[in-house]
Amino acid sequence: MDEKASGYWSATIGLLTKILIVWFLVSFGAGILFADALNGIHLGGYPLGFWFAHQGAIYIFIALIFFYAKKMGDIDQKFDVHED
């Protein structure tokens, strides 16, 4: 594997790791593991932990995918592997 390809791949894995951490924190973290603790805080009429499980995680998932698509586009350009 040449250096460019391995640099590209490690940049990709780095981005994936960051996004997966957020993905995990908003769903399994805020929505499940810490839901009870967060329910003490209210967002309007929503207990916060309940809100993450029933609403919030979904909104953040959408943002994560578009963020990923944008950042991967940048990485493609940087390592000059984008489609023609």
Binding site: S27, H54, A57, I58, I65, Y68
Partner: peptide, 10 residues
């Protein structure tokens, strides 16, 4: 169901 069937898209 809500988190599971949307989080998979990420």
């Amino acid at each position: 169901f809500l988190m599971g069937w949307t989080g998979g898209y990420v």
